[in-house]
């Protein structure tokens, strides 16, 4: 009975969304465009952040620091830990995940429409940095917008069911004035949360190109993961 009601409610909900999607202009379109416009002005930026992982399996949160560099149109570098324990480098259609402590590297091809682990990783890494409205809207939908203490909060839902299995909700916090990124929070499927709070965003400063280098120390174990066509 309860299940039937839930299904009915879900069905009604989907129906309402479909009606809204087809007949009524997206109420969050303007916000999204503004955010995108603010992001696209940033050809290069770098920031430090603090990441707090509230994992259901642990009694205490795990805190680590990290840094991020971005260079338009498609290069970025994430470092997590100090010294870095995990590094993600994207350059063009290649994403490289490095684990310096384990001397291990994994390479993912992002050509075409990435699926599987590559897509999951990209969802975690660049969801908060939109470059194209079509691309972004293809991956996320805004389910809620609110403001609090000068911060604009966007509640996002991955469109891909596979991504939702991993991360049903992504929260993006923007500066209400500048629409600059202040925080992201990923709600995982088991209720765990990963919150990254960004420090000062330094924009359009020169970034050494070797930061985006895909070179891997030959002594490391490199695993290549080709994205299925």
């Amino acid at each position: 009975m309860i299940r039937g009601f839930r299904n009915l409610a879900a069905g009604l909900g989907v129906g309402v969304l479909v009606v809204l999607g087809e007949g009524v202009p997206d109420p969050y379109e303007a916000i999204l465009r503004s955010w995108l416009e603010a992001s696209t002005h940033l050809n290069r930026f770098q920031a430090e952040f603090q990441q707090t992982r509230h994992l259901k399996a642990l009694t205490q949160p795990l805190v680590s620091t990290g840094r991020v560099w971005f260079s338009a149109p498609d290069r970025f570098r994430w470092e997590l830990g100090d010294p870095p324990q995990s590094v993600a480098v994207r350059s063009g259609d290649t994403l490289l995940i490095l684990s310096p402590r384990l001397r291990r590297a994994e390479s993912y091809s992002l050509g075409g429409n990435p699926t599987g682990p590559a897509r999951d990783l990209m969802g975690l890494l660049d969801g908060a940095f939109p470059r194209s409205i079509e691309d972004w809207k293809g991956r996320f939908e805004i389910t809620g917008v609110s403001t609090n203490q000068g911060m604009l909060r966007l509640d996002l839902r991955p469109r891909s069911p596979a991504a939702r299995k991993l991360m049903p909700v992504l929260i993006v916090g923007l500066d209400a004035g500048t629409l600059g990124l202040r925080l992201t929070e990923m709600i995982m499927v088991d209720g765990s949360r990963i919150r990254s709070e960004f420090g000062t965003l330094r924009t359009n400063l020169p970034i050494p190109s070797e930061l985006f280098s895909l070179e891997v120390d030959p002594a490391w174990k490199l695993t290549r993961n080709e994205s299925p066509p």
């Binding site: 990441q51 994992l55 830990g81 324990q85 402590r101 682990p117 995982m188």
Partner: peptide, 20 residues
């Protein structure tokens, strides 16, 4: 614990949390 704090691999994150 350190990997849990710093891994960027969602699958590893999920695995280590429940298989320490």
């Amino acid at each position: 614990r350190e990997r849990l704090a710093t891994t960027l691999d969602p699958a590893e994150l999920a695995r280590l949390a429940y298989d320490p």
